[in-house]
Design a protein around this nucleic acid. Structure first.
Lengths: 340, 340
DNA sequence: CTAAGTGGGACATAATAAGTCCATTAGGGA
DNA sequence: TCCCTAATGGACTTATTATGTCCCACTTAG
């Protein structure tokens, strides 16, 4: 894999872009409003006057702006620089801008975008995983219960976890009996995550379709009851988002359910819930564990999904998603979301 | 004029390159010596252990290196990054490296290189001027007497001065009677510099070739005496470096002097002194004002000259140049200097 | 078993950034 | 002409961050 200059720099100096962005927008505003005073400018930019002042002295030393008793203006040099910057910044901060835009559009806590498109470049899935692991590392400290769903994306997240993240985790499958191949089952993924972080996990095996009677019996099982209470008290929920039809087909969905899903124009799926384009729940896999309403009570909710083909699914689910959700996605999906 | 990405970044975040360089070399060393411990590494890199430690924790957080009880090693990611970095850094820090090398080779206080080649791109001369103005800004505060020579390069410096540099300057021509066209005469340039910085200047008009008798008379002139004493007490000397033959031809040099200069294989010229490739003075324009020996007593000496055609001249003069000289040149000349 | 190497914890201190308040001044409108 | 507003820049305090310093526990090679 080949890194671009800016990627290298981001890695070696992570707040390069944010600093550049800050100074760039100061120049931009001055260019727009010149001559302009500090107070005036600081409110426009939403920074305190003091930090603006520091920036201003810096820019003055760099000979990019000149100050007079009328206010600040760009120097000829500053104008030239700004001109070159305009095009460069669009490129550099494209992703950052997209994150911001999506945060606003989707109305969630945070959107994290990794560059690339999972549909085109499979390795981007690992990048999603890494971004998720990083986020977990940032948000969590000490003991935590983490509820996890299945899917290949979640499997990628598991692969990117390291013991450094923490050791006091308990991973639990978010819901029982969502039949997939073993490798991508929630139970398997929980085990993998626990292994990679040197922490613990629980399993939850329940038959998919059961009679009401059997259901009651199962629910009385102490082991099951414990896992269920763990799920309800999870401080973090980690889940993927899938394309409705793909998911339905992958699972052993009954013919009538499949028909129902198709008729209702379901496009998205997350932890067993199917959503149409308006974000309404049109079908729900009947099983125990985490329910949609429970999400709001979790401190952290991270949704991970990438690839332009998942754009619709993500948009659909996001209409229902609780505000405390953090969406981790890729450029491919992000562009789809913005197109909408 | 079009700025490149890295130029923009340097301007918006001046210590970007130095930070990148530092972290890059840490990665480089670890890659070379892994596994290696902190103490060991810190002496190799010549940084204190504590700052290395801060860097290490940073690199660890970035997942570029891994630490164990054996020491530090690169992660796979770190290796990938390093590989990409090797080529990028060569490019980015090429000029910085050249500056360092030339400082050592020439044995002067500082070498500042601007990118480009004055011979090819005329606008680079303005860049030289800007670099000089910046340097002046950095080194000088309060009241200063500045002795200046003539030449088109010095004229370019004058063009780039701004009132921000300071207002308490007195510009004086370094030497009298070095005949050139009016535009590039020391007197004209001093006037221009004074005008652009809102400060003062003096003029010094003396005939080129005079009899000993006339000379004595002139020297008694109070106005001349004052200017001469200003020159001797200048805290900064600003001068260009020229190609010997070109300069000799441009001046109204007598036939015998021209012959003398050519016979002595003079290649370089600065403030009326002609130097051969060994740096020996082979001819000297007889006039009053700044003498070569006076340079050592000036606090700051800035020599400005660019263009690959001036490489030889610069090298010749630099053999004589006082140690407190700051050389401002361009890539074209710098490459010539390094070739030698 | 020892000794030399390792990382990392803990704390003091220096350097830097940011918050806060105010003095001074230039320019524009009445 | 004069005053009022908005401007910068100085000065001080406080918070945050980087660095210097010392030491301890641990691993591993010999």
């Amino acid at each position: 894999m080949k890194y671009s200059l800016i990627d290298l720099q981001k890695r070696l100096l992570p707040d390069l872009v944010s600093v550049m962005q800050k100074r760039f927008s100061i120049l931009q505003f001055i260019g727009l409003m010149e001559p302009v005073g500090r107070r005036n400018l600081s409110v426009s930019l939403g920074v305190t006057e003091r930090v603006l002042r520091s920036e201003v002295t810096f820019l003055k030393d760099q000979n990019l702006i000149s100050v007079s008793s009328l206010g600040m203006s760009l120097t000829t040099e500053g104008k030239d620089l700004l001109e070159s910057l305009e095009s460069v910044m669009r490129e550099i901060t494209g992703i950052d801008k997209m994150e911001e835009q999506l945060q606003n559009i989707l109305g969630v806590e945070k959107v994290i975008i990794v560059s690339g498109n999972t549909d085109v470049s499979p390795w981007v899935k690992s990048e999603l995983g890494r971004a998720c692991a990083m986020r977990m590392n940032q948000s969590l400290q000490g003991e935590n219960i983490i509820a996890v769903t299945g899917g290949s994306t979640m499997a990628a997240v598991a692969e990117m976890l390291t013991p450094e993240v923490s050791k006091d985790f308990v991973f639990v499958p978010a819901r029982g009996g969502i039949g997939e191949d073993v490798q991508n089952q929630a139970n398997t993924i929980c085990a993998k995550m626990a292994e990679r972080t040197h922490s613990k996990h629980r399993v939850l095996y329940v038959p998919d379709q059961v009679s009401s009677e059997t259901y009651q019996t199962i629910m009385k099982e102490p082991h099951i009851k414990e896992v269920l209470s763990l799920i309800k008290s999870a401080s973090m929920v980690l889940h993927g988002i899938g394309d409705a039809i793909t998911m339905a087909e992958r699972r052993k969905t009954s013919r009538e359910d499949l028909y129902k899903i198709q008729q209702a124009d379901a496009v998205g799926e997350a932890f067993g819930y199917y959503f149409n384009e308006s974000g309404e729940v049109v079908h729900k896999v009947h099983t125990i564990g985490l329910q949609l309403d429970d999400l709001e009570h979790a401190e952290h909710v991270i949704a991970v999904a990438g690839g332009s083909s998942k754009g619709k699914a993500i948009r659909a689910y996001m209409k229902q998603a609780p505000k405390n959700t953090v969406l981790i996605t890729d450029e491919g999906a992000a562009l789809q979301l913005l197109k909408g």
